[in-house]
Design a protein around this nucleic acid. Structure first.
Ligand SMILES: [Zn+2]
Ligand SMILES: [Zn+2]
Ligand SMILES: [Zn+2]
Ligand SMILES: [Zn+2]
Lengths: 163, 163
DNA sequence: TCTGGAAATGTTATAATATTACAAATTTTC
DNA sequence: GAAAATTTGTAATATTATAACATTTCCAGA
């Protein structure tokens, strides 16, 4: 069996964060986009863990740090990060998570554990292909796909199984 | 080419509504669930068209009709209808639409036109299968799938093409 | 037909998420 | 350095959803 994906096992998460920030800087530089301090800090907060964070959770952190922040501060930063493919919004949770495939052209598919809250972002060509085919069969021009699967991650399945 | 799906062409929509209500009554009877007047009226309002309706749109209608309605009135009715598979919530729109496959065991896939607002609910076995495979590959136990495709419906594509 | 419990509804208040509008400051471009 | 564009500050408000508790309606069993 393949080793479990990152969110599902202990790992040096700081490495995830560092890598994500480095990627983000490179992507913004390449796109001539300004990763300002607030935007970068919001991205870092979003990457705090593999669990999605609500906009108002981000806001609370910024406020706690003494930043002069209001809802538009956060939503603007999140809009910027979304537009540059650095974070995703999870519609079924009204929350945001760092993109695990920033820079790659991809359709995110999210496995959301209802027990521990961790989210794994996948790129599944088979799924994307099947979706495109289904849309094409209806002559529908697909532009944006929201695909979110709620359930139990491997770790949480085994835990309940041991009760 | 196959004829276009219902939402995308003129049709006797009242027939859709009548059928949906008849199906709902049968399903509730079979499940020993009470399709009370408010619940039935909410379902009928949701079926008003093939465009999703917000909870507060429903509320406004009920109020206009002189019903003594508050947000919980609507959300309770919607919860009931969702639980019995009669309506779906579209997470990316915060809105609700009548289920086009009530009674069938299905995973809804929604094609949402960003221009006209119509939504087509599909059942695509190929897509469901691919999603299950992808989840299984991560040892993830999928329980609930949110699949919403935003784009342009056939009608709206041809209109923009003629500009 | 009474009656006790369950289910549904009424009512008020509030929580949680997101946007509008306009002013001020900063950065970039020329 | 001035004009233009972008970003940020600030206050108010819109939109979506839920909590909490009282009241009513329904229905099964006595
Ligand atoms: Zn991604
Ligand atoms: Zn889990
Ligand atoms: Zn359905
Ligand atoms: Zn359309």
């Amino acid at each position: 069996m393949a080793s479990q994906a990152l969110p599902y096992r202990p790992h040096n998460h700081q490495a995830c964060v560092t890598q994500a920030l480095a990627d983000a800087r490179a992507i913004c530089r390449a796109q001539n986009a300004r990763l300002t301090p607030t935007r970068e800090r919001v991205l870092e907060l979003i990457w705090q863990s593999h669990k999605p964070l609500g906009a108002y959770d981000v806001l609370a952190e910024l406020t706690a740090e003494g930043q002069n922040a209001a809802p538009p501060t956060v939503y603007r930063a999140l809009d910027f990060l979304q537009q540059h493919g650095l974070v995703h919004r999870i519609a079924s949770l009204n929350a945001f998570i760092g993109c695990a495939h920033a820079g790659e052209n991809h359709t995110g598919m999210f496995l959301i554990c209802r027990s521990c809250g961790n989210v794994l972002e996948l790129t599944a060509p088979g799924v994307s292909g099947a979706i495109e085919d289904a849309a094409k069969a209806e002559s529908f021009k697909a532009e944006d796909v929201t695909l979110e699967i709620a359930g139990l991650c491997p770790r949480c399945q085994s835990e309940t199984g041991h009760d």
